[in-house]
Structures are given as C-alpha cells and as structure tokens.
Design a protein around this nucleic acid. Structure first.
Length: 423
DNA sequence: TCTGGGGTCCTAGGACCC
DNA sequence: TCTGGGGTCCTAGGACCC
C-alpha cells in the first residue's frame, strides 16, 4: 500500500519561542498577531489554561499573566528561518515532499514497504528534527492526505504517545472516524458541517458512508474528493514543485481608527510598495491592482466595506504604476464619514514577465503602463534589502504608524546583532 | 482603548459567440 | 402574435486552509 506522511510542528510559533529559551519549557507561552491584537499560537500549557485560538489579547491578558503565562509579539523572521531548517531536514529524507505551510509538510513514503516500517520512519524523523532544530513535531501516516490529517490529530491527542500515528488498516480507520466529529475533517469547515449536521451526518464515519453521487450533486466535487479520501482513495496528490502565486495581498489592521482620504492614502501607498516588492520577488507581473478598505467588524459604529480594482492595459511590475493604480482605485472605493480599521492591496491577473501581451488600446492608459523601468526597480529593491530605505513620495514615511510589537523576541538566527549569547 | 494576515479552489451566472 | 440552443470565457463571491 502506498503511504503518505504529514509532518506537523506542535504549536509552531510557541515552540519557536522556546528553542532559545529552554527556561520556558514548562511555562505557558502565547504568541500574538500584529499590533499585539489576537492570540495566534499557544503552547500546550496555555491551551489547558483555556486560552482560545484567535481570542483578543486584551480580554485574557490580565488573568493569563497573573497565572504566570508568558507572551511574545510575533517574530516572523525567526519562525520563517526555523521552518526552513525543519523543511530542509525533511527534504533530505524523502524524494517527494510538499511544503504545505510554514509548519506542515506532506511526504511521499514511496520507499517504504509496510506500515511497520512507516511507523519506524516516523519515529526517526521526529527525533531527528527535534535533535537538529529543537522543534517538536508529530507525524500522521496514512494512504491519503485527508487521512494523514486525521492520523496527526490522533497523534496529538494521545497522551503519553510517541507523536507518531499510522492509520492503514480499514478497521482501525473506521474506528477512529466514528469518534471524530465531522467538522474536524480537513476540508469541512463551519458552513459545510452545519449543512451536514442537518442531514444527520455528525461523525467523519457518517460522512465517509454517504452516497458519492448525492454529495456531488448536493455539494461539490471538493467534498466528493474528501469522502473518497476518507475511504482511502487518493484524490489530492502531493505537489512536488512550487506553483507560482496567483495573487499577492498586503493588508493590515490599524492600531487606531483612520478617517479621511488623506490619512488613508499614505497607508495604502505603503501597502502598494510592499506588494510591488513581493511581486518582483516572485518574478511576476500583474494586470490588476485592487484596494479594499473596511470599518471594524466589532462595535456599533456605521459599517462600510469598499473595494475597487484598476485594470492595466498590459502587465506591469513597476511600483510607480502600482501606486497610481492603487490611488485611482482608492479614490473610488473611499466613502467619507467612516472610521476605517483595516485596509489592503491585492495584486492579481498575473503573467510571466518574459511574455509580453501588447494591448490593442495602448494609448488608453499608457500613463500607468508604459513607464516600466526594470533597472530602477532592481536598484531600489537592492538598496531596500539592506540598511538604506528608499521611499516613494506618496508613502509619507513620517505619517506611518509603526506596527506595535512590544514583546518581540530577538531574531536569534537571522540578525548578527541579535545572536544568542552563551554564558 | 485594544479583535490577524495571506492564500487556494470551485461554482454560478453574465457576456458573448454562432 | 410568436423570440432557440449550445457553447466558451471571465469574474465575483463563497468556501476552505494555515
């Protein structure tokens, strides 16, 4: 039988914070989102204190700290680097691997003959990652991706277990599925589980037993694949190579409320500049720039969400074009009289930069599209990747609110000035 | 006072064609 | 008076994921 493995880092961000702080090994640790807004990662101890995922920090702060919990602002330089190290190790272990997210990877265990060997591989893999990087992982092994997710879930919730779970026997799988609520299945979110519950489907086992034709008709091909995967039929392949991105988003919530077009403009410009850097880093060009702005979902103030897109007559990647497009879109999306809490830029309609699709109507917005200067952009990107900062006038750097990160740990592994010291 | 950010895929429906 | 049928392409929006 062909087997796959899912390697999933335990409470990844919280574990990263502990790598260079062994003194926090038994202490509850949480990590916060930008502006120290929400809890986005929790150690086991923090979870058992009842800290929920995504909870606003201000709501739990007092009680949590009083009980001896520790807190960190997010340090993505550190998490990204440790993630790379974990993935490098895994890449050395198998021929085919899909890095699925910052803390997860699917491995193709084609070199492995049976489930006993697969289990032993899991144990070896886990101890190697732990020894070399210091991050605890758990490993789910099964014939399909959806089932590896469930195996990993089992590994996580088995107290005193080895952190490795292999689900390959039909009987064993059926037994586990009966105990698993349908909303825990990978690909079944809030909406689907509500609809399924109404149909009397409550466990993963119930879902697996449903009629494929009915699922396809009533829901979609996506859920059909999930059902087939629960039955052990692989439908979602391991993606060995990295697909080019199809869109780039840069968005932030603001620390205070923003009112008025003039206050919003430099913020949007700033997102546009960052988006342009990402676009060129991906070696792509886009034909559409969209802007979205919204008021806070919370509270009772009047609500508004604005969205508008600017289409270029041909693909661009020059920040100055993005800025002009973003500004035009913002002017239309903007409505006076609201307190804005969040905004962002979305780049889409990508095309490979070596292919040039000329427009029939070039003159229409050549103002935006023709001034592409590859060399200039390259130089700016180069300078900005070091100490120097080149700004565009519309960014008005003095008006930018820095992101609040009051409790950020050192960038131990990516900055010479912040290396850990051994005493 | 304070509530994250960045993605993918699929489908329905409109525009358009013959 | 009566107004078809079949197809493609594109996009917005919804659902999901971490």
């Amino acid at each position: 039988m062909k087997l796959l493995a899912l390697v999933d880092c335990d409470n990844f961000y919280a574990s990263c914070e502990r790598v260079f702080r062994p003194d926090l090994k038994q202490t509850p640790v949480v990590v916060l989102s930008n502006n120290d807004g929400c809890v986005i990662a929790r150690s086991k101890e923090a979870k058992s204190m009842g800290i929920k995922m995504g909870v606003p920090w201000f709501q739990v702060k007092k009680a949590y700290l009083a009980r001896g919990g520790r807190v960190f602002s997010s340090n993505f330089a550190l998490y990204g680097d440790l993630s790379k190290r974990v993935m490098n190790i895994l890449e050395g272990m198998v021929k085919k691997i899909e890095v699925y997210s910052i803390d997860e990877a699917f491995l193709d265990l084609q070199h492995i003959q049976n489930s006993k060997q697969a289990y032993e591989f899991g144990i070896y893999c886990r101890s190697t990652v732990h020894q070399w990087v210091g991050i605890p992982v758990r490993i789910g092994i099964a014939p399909t991706k959806t089932l590896t997710k469930i195996a990993s879930h089992v590994a996580k919730h088995t107290n005193g277990g080895t952190g490795v779970c292999c689900l390959s026997k039909q009987k064993h799988i059926a037994h586990i599925l009966k105990t698993l609520p349908v909303n825990e299945v990978w690909g079944v979110g809030r909406n689907l589980s509500k609809q399924l519950n109404q149909l009397g489907t409550h466990s993963a086992y119930d879902l697996m037993k449903m009629d494929i034709g009915f699922i396809r008709k009533k829901f979609s091909v996506v859920l059909e694949r999930t059902v087939r995967e629960l039955r052990g039929e692989p439908c979602i392949q391991i993606q060995n190579h990295i697909e080019p991105k199809k869109q780039i988003v840069v968005s932030r919530s603001f620390r205070g409320k923003i009112e008025g077009l003039n206050a919003l403009k430099p913020l949007i410009s700033n997102f546009a500049v960052r988006a342009g850097e990402k676009l060129r880093h991906e070696n792509q060009k886009c034909s559409q720039v969209s802007v979205f702005i919204s008021t806070s979902r919370f509270g009772k103030q009047p609500q508004y969400r604005g969205f508008n897109s600017f289409r270029f007559s041909h693909p661009i990647n020059d920040t100055r074009s993005i800025l002009m497009g973003a500004n035009t879109a913002l002017d239309i999306a903007f409505q006076e009289g609201y307190a804005y809490a969040k905004a962002g830029i979305l780049l889409s309609q990508f095309s490979c930069p070596t292919v040039i699709q000329k427009s029939l109507f070039e003159t229409m917005n050549q103002l935006y599209a023709l001034k592409q200067d590859e060399n200039l952009m390259q130089s700016v990107d180069e300078l900005n990747s070091h100490q120097t900062q080149i700004y565009y006038a519309s960014q008005r750097p003095s008006s930018l609110l820095p992101i609040q990160k009051r409790m950020v740990s050192p960038r131990y592994t990516t900055n010479w000035l912040e290396l850990p010291t051994a005493l």
